[in-house]
Each structure stands twice: as structure tokens, then as C-alpha cells.
Design a protein around this nucleic acid. Sequence first.
DNA 1: CAGTGGTCTAGACCACCTG
DNA 2: AGGTGGTCTAGACCACTGC
Lengths: 238, 238
Amino acid sequence: MNAVELEEKLIRDIEAGIFDSETGKLPSEPELIKKYGVTRYTLRNALSSLVAQGIVYQAQGKGTFIRKRRHNHYLTLNDTTGLTVAAQHQGIEITTVSAKLSIVKAKEAQFLPEDVELDPEEELYFVERLRYLEAAPFVMEYAYYRKEIVPYLDQEIIVGSIYNYLKESLGLNLGFSDKFIYCDECEQEVAQALQLKAGMPVLILEDEAYLAKGPLFNFSKLYYHYKYSKIFMLAKVN
Amino acid sequence: MNAVELEEKLIRDIEAGIFDSETGKLPSEPELIKKYGVTRYTLRNALSSLVAQGIVYQAQGKGTFIRKRRHNHYLTLNDTTGLTVAAQHQGIEITTVSAKLSIVKAKEAQFLPEDVELDPEEELYFVERLRYLEAAPFVMEYAYYRKEIVPYLDQEIIVGSIYNYLKESLGLNLGFSDKFIYCDECEQEVAQALQLKAGMPVLILEDEAYLAKGPLFNFSKLYYHYKYSKIFMLAKVN
DNA sequence: CAGTGGTCTAGACCACCTG
DNA sequence: AGGTGGTCTAGACCACTGC
């Protein structure tokens, strides 16, 4: 069993309630090592992933404890998953209600990445998507993909999961992404899509995504409806 | 040399430009191990901290590379530091222009933590602070501290770094904190403090902070001026 | 194929908490 | 003092990249 498998097994076991439900205490590391037949390295990797997700916390000298959470938020931001709709696991669905595809040159783009200088003549796919959370407008996305890295996109692909297509069909090895979060007054075009009024708040997420090998392949700007968007994150305190 | 010392040394060496400035490539791991006299475990811990800060990235089969960044943001959110003012390193200062301290019972609090049930009669310190970034109003903070864990606060403490006081003077062992980020329309009281108008956007950060041993000791709500607040974060892409 | 980072094993010692 | 998690050592094998 590797770290990822162990992590999934631990989550299942926690949800199944097989550990002490009174105190929320997990067995000690030596016991878990025996129970799951892994080394301490693998166990601790799996556990630290659970810690990062806010599922458990570890206290030196005491043990590992399940966290009781009553979170009621839609977006989760963390190291390993980026920004995800937490509620998707609970059956709440995101649907793409409109998606538009075009090709533009970098010099014509509405915005450019902060950290990478592009050739003005470079061709980019431009994807505009409006997505709903259940029946409510949730996010208006404007995304550019560098054509030299993502050679093909079509309408069918962009209504689904673009990242899955990049990984599965194109075999791209995705690496990391920079995210910038802020809020601003909503402009007319976005306001209309999200059924807001111009000047009302909107939560903006700028994203610059890189392949594992280093090059930028995608940069985008996502406008979230402020009433349905709450980002969750866990941090170590220093 | 331990992982933290190595991390600091690596940052100094990167800033000093001692590595290949053309490609940004660091020496390979075996070479760094020799150079700094540490084991691979320690080296990789230090490097993964640099990765989490967006200072370098690692590409399997290729090497470790320095990232060129031109970020222009004020707030950094990451695992190990929580939310920090990035620009502080560059001489931009945060000053507390007003700070008010009172004691209330939990049942009288303006808001309560999502994840912890408090005794309505429990006493809390309530700290209201307005802080400026240079000459502009930056953040209005409303923070509650559980008196049974933080037995003493006074005016002098709350104008400075409360967390430093908790660590250094009270010897508390801080653990982790949940953070919720969203935006909303600004209410009158906050608007006035931030020199905004009611209804304009405001970036809100809710924070629930726990000791290493597990108990909640602080929960707060920070209202950031939307024009000066941009949060940076780095994520692995799956 | 050689060199890179990614994962894992096995074991030691340290720091912290509780009784 | 004994048990807990936190850090570190030393070494092996795997997966990916580029020549």
C-alpha cells in the first residue's frame, strides 16, 4: 500500500467510524503501522495529507485526532487539489451552461500572465465559460491556453473538464499553479452573466498554471458569485 | 544544519545569485547534499518548503529551478505562514491606528466559530483593531480570545503583535487555523473605518485558530480593503 | 543510457504530554 | 517514566527527461 492508497483507506475508515468516536483519537503511529502494514514514512505522508485537508490534527505527546467540522462552504483551496468545489462530493453539481471557444493572438488578449512574458504573436485558445452551481450562476471563467502546448480544443471538450482532457487525452503532465485571490466591483459583462448589478462585489481568482516541466500552459481569470463562494483553507500557525 | 536553517541558507544563496543565473538551475540533489553537508531527507524538506513558497520548482528528470516572479501582491497565504503581508519584507509597514479591548460573554459575541460550540457564559476578550498599510486603511479586525486560554490582554499588547505575545510571554504552543475567505457588500461600520461606502466590496477572512494541543483559542473576522488586498497562493495541479 | 527528482524502507534520537 | 508525534540518517529502487 502506498501513501495515496493509505490516505484513501484512512479516510474511508474515519468516515466508517471505526476509530474511537468518543475522543476522536486514532491509534498511535506504531499501531497504525502494524494495522496497515506500511512503514512510518508512508503512514506519516498519508497522515500529513489528512492534516492538510483538515480531517485530523496531530499533537505531539498526545496523538492524532479526528476534527469535528461543520463547514458550510463551497470552495476548498489547498496544496494538492487547487480550488475545488467541496460540495461536489455531496451531490451538488456544477454545470456549464455556456461555453465559447476562439483563437486569439497574445497581443489581443484581455489580460496576460503576471509572471511570464509571451510573444505578442503567439496564438492562444480563449475559452469563456459560464457555470452554474445547482440552479444559480456561480462562476464566469475567462481562460487562455497556449496553442503551442495545447494544440487542440473543441466545443465538446470545453463543456466538460478541460484539465481531464489535458491529462488523459493529451498526456500532459501538469505541475503547479499560482493563484491570486481578490475582490472588486463587478463590471457590466460579468454582472449580467452572474445576475448581479454592476458595482456589486465579485470574488476574483486569477490562475497561472504550469506543466511539471516548467512552462506556462494556461492563465485564467475566474469571477465567482460572491454569495455562493467561500474559500476554505487550513494553515499551520507559527 | 537542520531543515529550517538549510531553507534559510538556500534562500540567501538564491538571492545572492550564486547559482546558474542563466537557466536558474540549482545543482542536483546529490550535489546539494555534498555542498551543504545534509542528508537527502533534510535537503528535500527544505526544498519542498521553497516549492511551497513559489521560490523554486522541481521537475523530475530535469532538476530544480528558480522561479522568476514579478508578483505585485500584499498578502500571502500558505501552509506554513498563514496570511502574511508579503510586502513587509520590502519595507512597507502595517500600523495599528486604533485598538479597543473589552470582555464579553460568548452569548453576547457578534459572531461565533463555525466548528466549536462555546458555553454561552464563557468569557472572551474582544479586540477591535483598525490597521493601515502605509497611509491607507487596510484592515478592520474583530477578534475574540478565550479568556480561559488567554488569561490576560491589555492595551499595550493589542497594538502590537498579539500572536508574538501569546507565544513569547504566555508560552502558548500555537497549532493550526482554519481560514474562510469570501467577499461581501460592506456594512456601514466597516465602510466608515476603511473609508469606503456601504455596499461596496470588502474581502473578508474568517479565522479560527487552535493550540497545538487541539483547543480553539481565537476566532476572528478581518475585513480587508478590496483595493489593497490580493492574496497569493501556490497549488499543486492534479 | 545516464542523470534527475519521487517514493519507500528501516531504524535512531529528540521534544512534548500525561500520569 | 513511558508513550506520543517530530526530525533526522542511510540507503534502495522507481519514473521521468534528454541525449
